[in-house]
Design a protein around this nucleic acid. Structure first.
Length: 470
RNA sequence: GGCCCCAUCGUCUAGUGGUUAGGACACUGGAUUCUCAUUCCAGUAACCGGGAUUCGACUUCCCGUGGGGUCACCA
């Protein structure tokens, strides 16, 4: 949309994701943001970095950072700077940068672009309640800006305070979003946002602006939910007299009911998809198709190909619904396109806690390939190969099993011969395949029977049929 | 509710003034077939409404309507 704007910038492209360690893992929506940031950086020979925004001690989750970083890595989105690997602008963890924010906050105060506020929670609540009652948007009333003269003194006496942004009145703040074009807000709509909390930690707004500037982030690519706070950030850039980064606000992934993707209505943790047997490449490919389409309308393409054809401005502003159906299809396509060896490896890794007979597994890989939507489908499909299934048979079925055992016992052990005997049984007892299937495997459908049986030792099959009779 | 963003099949989307509105998932039917799959073929299905501009609007503009986001010492 704003190509000239995009190209005007000749600085090195640097993108970032700035997750907060407040959940179990990285949210799938953030993984989407990460993907776009990664791809855009790669496309422009730039750097993709990770900064951890752990400024909320209340919601802080021990171990979350580690899981986030490991998830990003397991999806193949490699970053060149981050809290675990360092980099030229370290530290990459905001809790380790507190002095920086405090220093800059002080500068803001000196220039009267920010001010100390000593208001209690009670007064704030009261103010908000009053404003809501009068159908006004709750906003801080600049009470401390206008009435407090002795801030330094009060602070030196140990009084708790916050630092607030001094939003000027009657101004229009405008910025350009690569995906949406020009967006403007009237400052009268904006609140004197808290910049520095009473615990000395910055809020998101202060931290993100300072760090993006200091870390030379060229493109701020984040989710749409940030649009309404961007004018505050723009104001901060102006107050600091810093050059604005280029903004791009990505659509928010939605639940099927169109609300913001939430864990109540959809699995949201990236690692859940791995645990359920989705391939990272498939998930990324699916995510790539959210709000964007391949110029040749391709559905299946690699991360590298995505990088080569991606344009940020081609992203659509519409919030797409997450379609787990299509994701399953996508995953199935990826599994089917795997080489036998690769699928073997994936299954072995996925079931590393189980000991699978490698030779047996290798034999049935081709049978599995077209039948698996996720790696987890393996259990349902192949359980009977590795372990004798529990089958309970009625009289007629026992008769059939007995006959089948008899026929198979006298046959050369290959799938053609086995198939022949199976067909004999079908005809003789006038039953259909699912019935026979159930007698042998305990289920009515699954891997092709002749090939499956042929993959097992003959004795094993005969024994199983005999055991089923008892 | 204020402000901001958005609007093509159920879903993901192609489309940039003139198209039989295309593809993918899902769904339905058929072919192949030793169950189930895979594969192949076919089908159902969409431009939110109203104005304006224009010879002509899915496409441009405005107004509605609808959806989403945001209004914290959370990010």
């Amino acid at each position: 949309m704003q190509e000239s704007y995009e190209n005007m910038n000749t600085k090195k492209v640097r993108t970032r994701i700035a997750p907060s360690p407040t959940g179990e893992d990285i949210h799938i929506g953030n993984l989407y943001t990460a993907l776009i940031n990664y791809v855009f950086a790669k496309k422009n020979n730039g750097e993709f970095i990770i900064r951890i925004e752990d400024t909320d001690r209340g919601r802080f989750q021990e171990g979350a950072e580690k899981r986030i970083l490991s998830s990003v890595k397991s999806f193949g989105l490699t970053y060149s700077e981050g809290p675990d690997i360092g980099g030229p602008f370290k530290p990459y963890r905001q809790s380790e940068r507190l002095e920086i924010y405090q220093t800059f906050a002080k500068k803001l105060i000196e220039k009267k672009n920010a001010y100390y506020c000593f208001c209690t929670k009670e007064r704030l609540d009261e103010l908000r309640a009053k404003q809501s009652e009068m159908k006004q948007t709750p906003r801080y009333d600049k009470h401390c800006l206008e009435n407090v003269q002795n801030s330094e003194e009060r602070i030196s006496h140990g009084e708790k305070y916050v630092v607030r942004l001094n939003v000027p009145r009657d101004q229009v703040v405008t910025f350009t979003d690569v995906i949406r074009g020009g967006i403007s807000f009237n400052t009268n709509e904006m609140d004197d946002q808290v910049l520095l909390k009473s615990d000395g930690f910055p809020t998101y707004h202060l931290g993100v602006v300072i760090d993006d500037h200091l870390m030379e982030v060229s493109h701020v690519i984040r989710a749409e939910e940030w649009i309404s706070s961007t004018p505050k950030h723009v104001l901060l850039y102006q107050f600091f007299d810093w050059e604005l980064p280029i903004f791009a606000h990505l659509p928010i992934l939605r639940n099927p009911d169109k609300s913001k993707l939430s864990k109540r209505k959809n699995p949201v943790w990236a690692s859940w998809y791995i645990e359920e047997g989705y391939l990272p490449e498939a998930v990324l490919n699916y995510l790539a198709l959210m709000g964007w389409s391949h110029p040749e309308q391709k559905e299946i393409f690699s991360l590298d190909e995505f990088v080569s054809v991606f344009e940020l401005k081609d992203i659509h502003p519409v919030g797409p619904a997450f379609d787990s159906n299509k994701l399953r299809w996508m995953n199935q396509q990826y599994i089917q396109n795997l080489s036998d060896g690769a699928l073997f490896e994936k299954i072995v890794t996925f079931y590393s806690d189980k000991k699978l007979d490698s030779d047996l597994l290798k034999k049935i890989i081709p049978l599995l390939k077209t039948r698996m939507e996720t790696l987890k489908d393996f259990e349902d499909l192949a359980a009977f190969i590795f372990e004798a299934p529990k089958v309970s048979l009625n009289q007629k079925e026992k008769e059939i099993a007995s006959k089948l055992g008899e026929l198979l016992a006298s046959v050369d052990w290959d799938e053609e011969k086995i198939l022949l005997q199976l067909k004999n049984i079908l005809q003789e007892y006038d039953i259909r395949m699912p019935t026979l299937y159930k007698i042998v495997t305990g289920k009515e459908k699954g891997l092709p029977l002749p090939q499956s049986l042929a993959s097992l030792p003959k004795d094993e099959v005969i024994n199983r049929l005999r055991d089923a009779l008892s």
